[in-house]
């Protein structure tokens, strides 16, 4: 699979909803269109909620991946201001 190099990384481990999404949204707002954000998290519910909310807001979810027992990364490309 093609390796995507993120333009920005945000670590939201320790946060729960809705702050997981609030932090992720602020991070994506700070990017330019077409740039990619990588989100590192450990709150399982947010692995479904963040991608859904990002898509609702017009962003492109490129990847949701479990990287170990308790942690995931979500990769999102900014497609809408």
């Amino acid at each position: 699979m093609e390796q995507i190099k993120p333009d920005k990384k945000v670590d939201i481990r320790g946060l729960v909803c809705p702050y997981t999404f609030v932090r992720s949204k602020l991070a994506i707002e700070s990017l330019e269109l077409g740039q990619v954000l990588e989100i590192l998290l450990d709150y399982k519910d947010a692995t479904e909620n963040i991608p859904k909310s990002m898509q609702d807001h017009g962003q492109k979810v490129l990847k949701v991946e479990k990287i170990n027992d308790r942690e995931w990364i979500i990769v999102v490309r900014k497609e809408k201001e």
Binding site: P18, Y19, V22, E29, S30
Partner: peptide, 23 residues
């Protein structure tokens, strides 16, 4: 940059696509 308190206080604004951090 928002403080942690501001992120909590205004989270329901920031979540709105029409407002967000910029609004």
């Amino acid at each position: 940059d928002f403080t942690d308190d501001q992120i909590h206080r205004y989270s329901r604004h920031i979540i709105l696509p029409e407002v967000g951090g910029k609004g």
